[in-house]
């Protein structure tokens, strides 16, 4: 089936098998392998991307469902070579170790801040209910999101 999907600002036309998951479309059709796969039951959030600006799990979405829509992946988050404040904060505060959950964490948390720009620590922890990390114990992830939120309050950026 023919689809046209805009990813990170660029439009891609592809003829795909309808059963292809969005995450496989990104990774295998487009070579955007920054989006990872960590489970098969919609739990872990490693595959989180933005669909029309909202966080979604790309393993729980067929590519054909998003025909004509806009996707942003971790590869598209930095603008003009400048890291997004969330990326900066994860780096600054050691919010990652093996890095596998990180793209999903960053995409989920940037989407979350769009709905709640100034969350408490408890709210941040709650917002991560769909993103698992096995390395960091979450402590520095939470700190990074809090720090990014504060920076973004001072200097808003588009996501």
């Amino acid at each position: 089936m023919q689809v046209s999907i805009t990813v990170n600002g660029k439009r891609y036309e592809r003829n795909i098998d309808p059963r292809m998951l969005l995450v496989h479309f990104l990774r295998e059709e487009l070579g955007l392998t920054g989006t990872n796969i960590g489970c098969d039951t919609s739990q872990c959030g490693a595959c989180t991307v933005h669909l029309n600006g909202k966080g979604v799990k790309s393993c729980t979405c067929l590519a054909v469902q998003v025909d004509g829509m806009d996707i942003t992946t971790i590869e598209g988050l930095a603008q003009n070579g400048a890291l997004h404040p969330m990326q900066e904060a994860f780096w600054e505060l050691h919010g990652l170790q093996c890095g596998y959950c990180t793209p999903g964490m960053i995409m989920a948390s940037t989407a979350y801040l769009a709905t709640n720009p100034s969350p408490s620590e408890e709210e941040i922890r709650g917002s991560l209910e769909g993103n698992f990390c096995r390395c960091t114990g979450y402590q520095n992830i939470v700190a990074a999101i809090k720090s990014a939120a504060e920076k973004m309050q001072q200097e808003p950026v588009g996501v």
Partner: peptide, 22 residues
């Protein structure tokens, strides 16, 4: 406590895990 040198590739999607290879 310097910032990690492995992180730039990991926070931008530039890292290559095994299943990323083709």
């Amino acid at each position: 406590g310097i910032k990690r040198r492995e992180d730039p590739r990991l926070i931008t999607g530039g890292a290559k895990y095994t299943d990323d290879m083709a």
